[in-house]
Design a protein around this nucleic acid. Structure first.
Length: 894
RNA sequence: GGGCCGUUAGCUCAGCGGUAGAGCAUUCGCCUUACACGCGAAGGGCCGCAGGUUCGAAUCCUGCACGGCCCACCA
C-alpha cells in the first residue's frame, strides 16, 4: 500500500479486493463441507430480473453482507446464497412495454418465442444485477447462484405443487378473484393495493315491477348495475321493511330482481339500499351466495362489457359503459343524485390500474392449516422477528388469512403442472392429472391428447420455496440438511406477508422446520424528505453513481449507520460524505500509525500482552479498557441485529477516543527521545487499530481489508484476508474502571483549559503557563503525575502548583476536576471580560447547587430514594458547591 | 373502522425511571509535521398536548392532537 496519499482513493482498492475475494473463494461453503457447528446461513431475497439495483437493494444486501462477514470474522462457517427471481408479472410487463414501443403485443410474438425472448433478456439482466452485488462487496457463495426459474427450482415447484395436491391443499375453483385488466391476469389478495381516489356516489332509482315507487340505491360503479341480480337492505331498516321480498324492475335491462334482507348492509351509508352485482363485487358475491342469487357477468376479462350487458353496451370499455349507463339513466329519469365521493380503489401492485373483481376459474392454495403451523412457530419462538414489533401484524395477518389464488394468466413463469384429457375433461367430476411431465395417456380413456393448463404460477409460489429450493430440495441431500433451517432472512417490511409468511408456511409444510429462525426487518430507503424514491418524482439516488463518487464503503456505512431496525431511512447525498470522511479518517489514522512503527515488523509482531503493566502508561490502559468496552458493546448489539447502533459505537470509538485522544497522547512518547518508551504506544496503536478495523470490516470491507494488509505484520498475523485472521480479543484483565475514571478527570481539565483559551482568544500558537491550586491531594497527584498529558493537549508551556490563594494578576480562571486553574495572560486578558465570564459561570452553578440542595432537603427523597442515588446527588451537590466557592473567591479578588 | 410506529437542538436521529446526547448544519479560532474528507471551541432543546403513577418521568400508564405505515367487504 502506498502510504503517500493523504486522501483515500477507493476505486483501485475496491477493484483489487473484489477480484481477490472472488478468485480465492473466500465465501464458498461448498468446498468446506459440514463442520461441527451450525453454519450461519442466509438466502438472498432474490432481486427481480427487471433492471438494475436501486438503493433499497443496496441497503438490503449491505445488511446481509454485514451479518455474513461479521459471523465469518467470528469464526463461524457462513453461506450466503446468491440468486435472482424471475419476477412474474413485473418482468413480463417490462418486456411487454418494450414490445409496445415497437407496436407489438405478446400475442403477435406467440407464447414460445415470447418466453424465449424473456429468457434471453432476463439472463442479461441477471448478469448485471449479480455484477452489481459483487461490486457492493457482497460475500456471496458464487458457486450456488440460483434463479427461481432454473431447472432445479422448477423441480422444487413441481414437487411442492404435487405435495399440496396430494394433501388436498390445492384446488381449482370458480371464485371471485382480483383481475388486472391491463395485465390480463388474476392477482392474489395481497397483490392488490388500495388508493384513495376521487369519484362519485350516484343515487339510482329502481322502480317496483308493478310500477310503484320502489327505492334508490347508491353506487360508485353505475356500469355494474347491468349485472345486478338483487337489491339488499338491512332486515331491521324501517324504511325498507315493507319492500323485502318484493320485485324490482332493473332499469335499462328490465330484469326482475328481488329485494333481499342481509345483515351486511350498512343502513347509514348512502340510501341504505345496496345494489347486488354478484359477478363483480366480492361483497355482493357473498350476499348472492347467501340468498341463492344468480350471477350475471357483464364485464369480461378484457375489461369490456359482455353481450350479457345488453347489445347497447356490449363491447364498450368499463369507462365508456359508465358514461353511457349514466346518460341512459338520466334520460330515463332514474338518476336521482350525484355526490362527490372519495373512496379507495383496488389497483394492481404492478401496473397500478384499477382491479376488476371477477368470477373466474383459478387455482387456489388452502391456507388455513398452513397458516396454523406458521402461527405456532412464531408463538413458540421457533421463529422470531426483529424488531419484535412486527410480530403482531404478522400473527394477525396469518390469523385472518384467506385462500391464495396462485394461477396467473401470463406466460412468464412456471407453467402449472396439470394436464387435461381433451376427451374426458368436460365430464362431471373429471380429475386432471398432476405432474411435471406430459402423461403418456389419459388413464380413463387411454387417449393421448392431453393439454397442459395454460396458466403459470404466481411468482411468489416459487419464491416461497426459496430457502430450501436453493439447497436442492426435494432431494434430501446432506447439503440441505447442513444448511436448513437457515439462520436469518433480511428483508423490508413491505414483503412480510407476500414473501416472509409464505416461506414460513411452505418451509414448515415441506420440511417440518422453519426456513429461517430469525427475520430481520429493515425499512425502506426514502429521499431526505421521506418520500419514496421513484423515477417519476425524479428523486432517485443511484447506488452505482454514489459508489463511483464516494466509494462503496462510504455508501455501505452511510446506509448501515442509519438502518435502525424497522425504520425507514431518509437518505441524502450528504449522509454519504460523512461516511466518506470516516473512511478517510481510517486511512489517515493507519497512515499515522505506520509512520510511527519500525520499518519492518519484528517476528511475531509488536508484543502487547507480554508488555509489563509498568511499561504501560495511563492512556494505554485507558484506550485498552475503552477498546474492550467497544468490542463488548458492539457484539451485544449485533446479536440483536442492532446494526446501526453497532456501527455508531465503532465510529465513536475510532474517531473520538482513539484518534482525538489516544493518538494525540501517544505522540508524547513517539516524538520523544526515549526510544525504549516507544514500545508501549507502538504496540497499543497497532493492536487497537487493527482490531477496530476488523470490527469495522463487515461495514466497510474494502478499506479495512487494504489497511489490514499493511498492519498485519505488526500484530503478528499472516492471514491472506482479514476475515481469515480471527476476531479481535482482549481479556477481562484489560478492563479498568480506574483508568477510565482517571482519564475522564484529565480530559475534563484539558477541555476546561481549551475552552478558556478559546474564550480568551489566546492564539493557538501561544504556549500558556498554568497554575493549579486547591483540591484534594488525590486530585493534585493525578494532575501532576500526568501533567505532560495536559501540557501537550492544552498546549501549555508549563503546568505547576501554586499555593492556595495566590492568584496571579491578570489571569483567567477555570475550575475542573476539583482544582482551580489560573492562566496568567498579561496583556491578553481583559479583566472586565473575565469578570463577566466568571459571573456567568457562577450564575449557572448557583442554579445547579440550589436545585441539588432542594432535592437533598426533600424528606421524601431522602427516605424513599435508593442510597446510591442519594449519595450521587450529595456528591454532585458538594462538587457544585465547591466550584461555586472557588469562583466566588476569585471574583472577590478580581 | 381496527392495528402498528413516530412526534427530543435548524435537519436526521440516539437515549427509554435520577431534568438531555450524536452526526450534519451554523458561528468563532486554527494550514498545531496522520488527516482542512482535518483540529479546537461555542451557540442552540419548558424532550407534541393534557392528566395520572412515582421521592423523582423525555423515559411507565391513560386520554388527545398531528404525521406516516399496515390491515379491513362500507356499496
Amino acid at each position: 500500500m502506498s502510504m503517500l496519499e493523504k486522501t483515500y482513493d477507493p476505486q483501485p482498492v475496491e477493484k483489487k479486493w473484489c477480484a481477490a475475494w472472488r478468485s480465492s473463494r473466500l465465501f464458498g461453503s461448498k468446498a468446506g463441507g459440514p463442520g461441527s457447528d451450525r453454519p450461519f446461513v442466509i438466502v438472498i431475497p432474490p432481486p427481480n430480473v427487471t433492471g438494475a439495483l436501486h438503493l433499497g437493494h443496496a441497503l438490503n444486501n449491505t445488511l446481509q453482507d454485514i451479518l455474513v462477514r461479521w459471523h465469518k470474522l467470528h469464526g463461524r462457517a457462513v453461506c450466503w446464497v446468491p440468486g435472482t427471481d424471475h419476477g412474474g408479472i413485473a418482468t413480463q410487463n417490462v418486456m411487454e412495454r418494450q414490445l409496445k414501443a415497437e407496436g407489438k403485443t405478446r400475442h403477435d410474438v406467440g407464447r414460445e418465442p415470447f418466453v424465449e425472448m424473456m429468457r434471453t433478456w432476463s439472463s442479461d439482466c441477471k448478469k448485471t444485477i449479480l455484477g452489481q452485488l459483487d461490486r457492493l462487496g457482497c460475500g456471496l457463495d458464487w458457486d450456488r447462484e440460483a434463479f427461481t426459474m432454473d431447472p432445479e427450482r422448477a423441480k422444487a415447484v413441481h414437487a411442492a405443487f404435487e405435495h399440496y395436491w396430494a394433501k388436498g391443499l390445492i384446488y381449482r375453483g370458480e371464485r371471485m378473484v382480483n383481475w388486472c385488466v391491463r395485465c390480463g391476469t388474476a392477482l392474489s389478495d395481497i397483490e392488490v393495493e388500495y388508493e384513495e381516489r376521487k369519484g362519485h356516489l350516484w343515487h339510482i332509482h329502481y322502480p317496483l315491477k308493478d310500477g310503484s315507487e320502489g327505492l334508490a340505491v347508491a353506487t360508485t360503479r353505475p356500469e355494474t348495475m347491468l349485472g345486478d341480480t338483487a337489491v339488499a337492505v338491512h332486515p331491521s331498516d324501517e324504511r325498507y321493511k315493507g319492500l323485502i321480498g318484493k320485485t324490482l324492475s332493473l332499469p335499462l335491462t328490465g330484469r326482475d330482481i328481488p329485494v333481499v334482507a342481509d345483515d351486511a348492509v350498512e343502513s347509514s351509508f348512502g340510501t341504505g339500499a345496496v345494489k347486488v352485482t354478484p359477478a363483480h363485487d366480492p361483497n355482493d358475491f357473498e350476499i348472492a351466495g347467501r340468498h341463492g342469487l344468480p350471477l350475471v357477468k357483464v364485464i369480461g376479462p378484457d375489461g369490456k362489457m359482455t353481450p350479457e350487458a345488453g347489445s347497447a353496451y356490449a363491447g364498450l370499455s368499463r369507462e365508456k359503459a359508465r358514461d353511457k349507463v349514466l346518460e341512459d339513466l338520466k334520460a330515463g329519469g332514474h338518476l336521482r343524485k350525484t355526490d362527490d365521493h372519495r373512496h379507495s380503489v383496488g389497483v394492481c401492485y404492478r401496473c397500478l390500474s384499477a382491479v376488476e373483481p371477477l368470477v373466474s376459474k383459478q387455482w387456489f392454495v388452502r391456507m388455513k392449516d398452513l397458516a396454523a403451523q406458521a402461527l405456532k412457530a412464531v408463538q413458540d419462538g421457533r421463529f422470531r422477528i426483529f424488531p419484535e414489533s412486527w410480530t403482531k401484524p404478522y400473527t394477525e395477518w396469518l390469523s385472518g388469512i384467506r385462500d391464495w389464488c396462485v394461477s396467473r394468466q401470463i406466460w412468464w413463469g412456471h407453467r402449472i403442472p396439470v394436464w387435461y384429457c381433451t376427451t374426458c375433461r368436460e365430464q362431471d367430476g373429471y380429475t386432471p392429472l398432476v405432474g411435471a411431465d406430459r402423461p403418456a395417456a389419459c388413464p380413463a380413456c387411454k387417449g393421448t391428447a392431453l393439454d397442459q393448463d395454460p396458466d403459470v404460477l404466481d411468482t411468489w409460489f416459487s419464491s416461497a420455496l426459496w430457502p430450501f429450493s436453493v439447497f436442492g430440495w426435494p432431494d434430501k441431500s446432506e447439503d440441505l440438511a447442513y444448511h436448513y433451517p437457515t439462520t436469518v432472512l433480511v428483508t423490508g417490511y413491505e414483503i412480510l406477508y407476500l414473501w416472509v409468511a409464505r416461506m414460513q408456511m411452505s418451509g414448515l409444510e415441506a420440511l417440518g422446520q422453519v426456513p429461517f429462525e430469525h427475520a430481520y426487518i429493515h425499512g425502506i430507503v426514502r429521499d431526505k424528505k421521506g418520500k419514496k424514491m421513484s423515477k417519476s418524482l425524479g428523486n432517485v439516488i443511484d447506488p452505482l453513481v454514489m459508489m463511483d463518487k464516494y466509494g462503496t464503503d462510504a455508501l455501505r456505512f452511510s446506509l448501515a449507520v442509519q438502518a435502525h431496525p424497522g425504520k425507514d431511512i431518509p437518505f441524502s447525498e450528504e449522509s454519504i460524505t460523512g461516511s466518506r470522511n470516516f473512511a478517510n479518517k481510517l486511512w489517515n489514522s493507519t497512515r499515522f500509525v505506520l509512520m510511527n512503527l519500525p520499518e519492518t515488523a519484528p517476528e511475531g509482531g509488536l508484543p502487547l500482552k507480554t508488555l509489563k503493566p509498568s511499561a504501560l502508561d495511563l492512556c494505554d490502559r485507558w484506550i485498552l479498557a475503552e477498546y474492550r468496552q467497544a468490542l463488548t458493546r458492539t457484539r451485544e448489539l449485533m446479536k440483536e441485529y442492532e446494526v446501526a447502533a453497532a456501527a455508531d459505537v465503532l465510529y465513536g470509538f475510532l474517531w473520538d477516543r482513539f484518534c482525538d485522544w489516544y493518538v494525540e497522547l501517544a505522540k508524547i512518547r513517539l516524538q520523544g527521545a526515549d526510544e525504549a518508551a516507544k514500545a508501549a504506544p507502538r504496540a497499543v496503536l497497532a493492536h487497537v487499530l487493527t482490531g477496530t478495523l476488523k470490527m469495522l470490516h463487515p461495514f466497510m470491507p474494502y478499506i479495512t481489508e487494504e489497511l489490514y494488509g499493511a498492519l498485519k505484520p505488526f500484530v503478528g498475523e499472516t492471514a491472506d484476508f482479514l476475515l481469515r485472521s480471527g476476531a479481535p480479543e482482549l481479556g477481562a484483565e484489560w478492563e479498568s474502571e480506574g483508568a477510565i475514571r482517571e482519564m475522564g478527570r484529565l480530559i475534563e481539565v484539558v477541555k476546561a483549559l481549551r475552552t478558556l483559551r478559546s474564550e480568551m482568544c489566546a492564539p493557538p500558537g501561544l504556549r500558556i503557563s498554568v497554575l493549579a491550586s486547591g483540591g484534594e491531594s488525590r486530585d493534585r497527584d493525578l494532575l501532576f503525575k500526568y501533567g505532560e498529558y495536559v501540557r501537550f493537549l492544552a498546549r501549555l508551556s508549563e503546568l505547576k502548583p501554586s499555593a492556595d490563594g495566590e492568584r496571579p494578576q491578570h489571569s483567567a480562571t477555570a475550575v475542573a476536576s476539583g482544582l482551580t486553574f489560573f492562566v496568567p495572560l498579561e496583556g491578553v486578558i481583559d479583566l472586565s471580560k473575565e469578570r463577566q465570564r466568571l459571573e456567568k459561570e457562577v450564575g449557572r452553578l448557583e442554579v445547579e447547587a440550589a436545585r441539588l440542595a432542594a432535592k437533598l432537603a426533600d424528606a421524601d427523597f431522602i427516605s424513599r430514594a435508593p442510597r446510591e442515588q442519594i449519595e450521587l446527588s450529595q456528591g454532585q451537590h458538594a462538587d457544585a458547591a465547591a466550584r461555586l466557592a472557588r469562583l466566588k473567591d476569585v471574583l472577590k479578588t478580581l
